[in-house]
Simulated assay, not measured.
Amino acid sequence: MESFPVPSLPEELLAEIFLRAPSLEDLARISMANNYCHDIISDPYFVRCVPLHRYPSFFLGFFTRDGFKPVQPPHPSASISNLLLTASDLSFSFLPFPGSWIVQDICDGRALLSRSHGSKGDQESIFMHLAVCDPLSRRYVLLPPLPDDLYTYVQDLCHNGFNYRCETFLVPRGECVVAETSFKVIWMARGHKKLLVLIFSSVVGKWHAVTSLDGQCIGKVISFSRRVHSRRSYAYGCFYWKMGEARKVLALDTRKMEFFFSNSPLGYLEYDCAVVEAGEGRLGIFALFHHMTGTRLHLYCTTKKKEAWSTDEWCLEKTIQLPPTAHDYRIMCATNGYLFMQYTQGSSYPSSKYGYILMGVKTFLFERFYETNRPSSFPTPYFGFPPSLSPPSI
Rank of each mutant, 00 (worst) to 15 (best):
C166Q: 12
E367R: 10
A287F: 09
A111S: 11
P386G: 06
Y55V: 02
L9R: 14
H192M: 05
T372K: 08
D214H: 05
M292H: 14
V275R: 02
F261M: 14
T293E: 15
F340M: 03
T295R: 04
K242F: 04
A308I: 02
V275F: 02
Y300N: 07
Y370P: 03
H38A: 06
F127A: 05
L143P: 14
F4V: 08
F68H: 08
L52V: 09
I320M: 06
A111Y: 03
W187P: 04
N34G: 07
Q155W: 10
F340C: 04
I102T: 14
D39Q: 11
R138H: 14
V132D: 13
G267I: 05
N373E: 14
C37Y: 14
A326G: 11
I357Y: 02
V103D: 01
L150W: 08
E180L: 00
R231E: 14
P56W: 05
P56Q: 09
D66C: 12
S212F: 00
T325Y: 13
Q155P: 04
S100F: 14
S93T: 15
Y329Q: 08
F224W: 12
S31V: 07
Y343K: 13
R368L: 09
Y151A: 13
F200T: 02
E11V: 10
M359T: 01
W207I: 05
F59T: 05
L130Y: 12
E16S: 11
L389H: 02
V6Y: 09
K220P: 00
